[in-house]
Design a protein around this nucleic acid. Structure first.
Length: 479
RNA sequence: CGAGGUGUGGCUCAGUUUGGUAGAGCGCCGUGUUCGGGACGCGGAGGCCGCAAGUUCGAAUCUUGUCACCUCGACCA
């Protein structure tokens, strides 16, 4: 029976106001709380646990390829940051500076790392001497600070958590191979754990990382049709090595510069998780990344035996390897259902006196709300099956959404019309000239997202300028 | 950083036009009855109205400044 009164403010529907929906979900799922410092957020247990799971799984994938973790200082002396010209130009406008130690002014001010290329380079210049020292495959998990003008939880915060991998190689080929390898790891991770399909490709010169030779990216599509750069992998060539004098003696005893890469994924990906899978009831977490996979909701829990049964089911499921909690608060069942849904917990198990009598329980999927009555003996098996199915279905749905939001433009008018009316990616040929890229941005606010690895020849000329087309580019509005 | 908007118990907001010392619902605490889609009764706690100056006998209300948040741009993971 439906109640007319709804006391608790629901999440703003996506269709009404997507930005507000996002903020509501972030707050109501208790992922974050705003802090006292502009643009900085407090990651609450529900939010941090997601990051911990991302970290755990991604870290394991890195380590399988020989990567080792280190930790670098959070401060960078100004002189060190200055060493690579493009790099400092790219980051200078948004670094935070430490000017005093205690009461004393520092001789040289220190920047709070916006990224740690310069520190790794300085470090590598000291520890690399011979070809026998290569490759160096280091990564660090840390936070970085970028004094952004406008911030949004997860998508762009002044301080954010991430990992940054920095490698040094003997040859250009090896560095390129590593750059692509890490991009593939990100893409695989997104598909396998986060159920987020991505477009892999290369950034245009305009969009590439400050100081990089080439930047590769994975681009995901949010529910509102906007793109989110979800992970990047850069090939630095020997540019940084020359600026920082990172040389090794090769087999012929000749001095050579190393070739470097760097690659990162941040808490921003949690923003993607929210905006790819969430719905009007809140967050929907893919089972493989969900900190709690099953919430058991006892019905009529004060009736004898109900809580005991719920606890028993919990132990059974935990033994079977699932992450399970029981909501034994004295809220009404309806309340608990809504809480579980807003937090995106993949499955709910309802267990009440009637079920106990019948030797059964009800499993409810978060994504489809599909209800499944199962006998208690096979609960663990069914939970496993359903989690698996849900993970797959979520990926398939996201893939379908992505596929149905990729458009093609043969003329610039068609392009402009599509940007205006159909949110998503637009495939269009490009002459390779930055002027056209800038014009597109000026006219439409859409930017080049990437030059996808999987190329097609849509037209022979660049629809913007009419010159011969060199590449097909994915364009779109982005976060 | 530019344009616009909003700041009043934990949340959503009324009160500001016309200055007179703060309200509602939800939430919270206690208690009892409840429990299959945000239950109900009774009792209670909690706010010098974002912050700072100013005008005034008196400011949530008027003035100036400042900070935060939201939307749209520019910049960026």
């Amino acid at each position: 029976m439906a109640k007319e009164k709804k006391f608790v403010e629901a999440v703003t529907p996506m269709s009404e106001d997507f930005a507000q929906w996002y903020t509501d979900v972030v707050k109501k799922a208790e992922l974050i709380e705003y802090s006292n410092v502009r643009g900085c957020m407090i990651l609450r247990p529900n939010g941090y646990a997601i990051w911990e799971n991302i970290q755990k799984n991604l870290d394991a994938m890195f380590k399988e390829t020989g990567v080792e973790n280190v930790y670098m200082p959070m401060f960078i002396p100004e002189s060190l940051l200055q060493k690579e010209k493009d790099h400092v130009e790219g980051f200078a406008p948004e670094v935070a500076w430490v000017t005093h130690g205690g009461m004393n002014k520092l001789e040289e001010r220190l920047c709070v790392r916006p990224t740690s290329e310069t520190l790794f380079c300085d470090f590598y210049s000291r520890i690399i001497e011979s070809h026998r020292d290569l490759p160096k495959l280091y990564n660090q998990w840390c936070s970085v600070v970028r004094w952004e003008k406008t911030t949004r939880p997860f998508l762009r915060s002044a301080e954010f958590l991430w990992q940054e991998g920095h490698t040094a190689h003997a040859t250009e080929e090896e560095a390129e191979e590593r750059t692509i390898q890490m991009l593939n790891i990100y893409a695989d991770f997104c598909e396998k754990y986060l159920a987020i399909p991505v477009i892999k490709g290369q950034k245009t010169d305009k969009e590439k990382f400050a100081g990089a030779k080439s930047t590769y990216t994975i681009e995901a599509l949010m529910h509102d049709g906007k793109a989110l750069q979800s992970g990047t992998s850069h090939n630095f060539g020997d540019g940084f090595a020359r600026a920082f004098n990172i040389q090794y003696s090769d087999k012929e005893n000749k001095l050579q510069y190393v070739h470097q890469t760097s690659w990162g994924m941040s808490t921003r990906i949690i923003g993607a998780l929210i905006m790819v899978h969430g719905d009007d009831s809140g967050l929907v977490l893919p089972p493989r990344i969900a900190p709690v996979q099953v919430m058991i909701v006892p019905i009529a829990q004060r009736k004898p035996g109900v809580l005991e049964k719920a606890a028993e089911l919990k132990s059974t499921l935990i033994e079977a390897g699932y992450k399970v909690k029981v909501d034994d608060s004295d809220k009404s069942p309806g309340w608990k259902f809504n809480e579980q849904e807003i937090r995106g917990i993949p499955l709910r198990v309802e267990i009440g006196p009637k079920d106990i009598e019948a030797g059964q329980a009800i499993i409810v999927r978060r994504d489809t709300r599909e209800k499944l009555v199962v006998s208690l003996d096979e609960l663990a098996d069914k939970i496993g099956e359903t989690l698996e199915k849900m993970q797959n279905d979520m990926l398939e749905r996201a893939k379908a959404h992505l596929a149905s939001h990729i458009y093609e433009a043969k003329t610039y008018d068609e392009f402009k019309d599509t940007v205006e009316n159909k949110p998503g990616f637009i495939k269009m040929m490009w002459c390779g000239d930055q002027a056209c890229e800038l014009k597109i941005k000026e006219d439409t606010t859409a930017t080049s997202r990437c030059i996808p690895f999987e190329q097609e020849q849509i037209t022979d000329v660049c629809p913007v300028c009419g010159k011969p087309a060199k590449k097909m580019v994915f364009w779109g509005k982005a976060y």
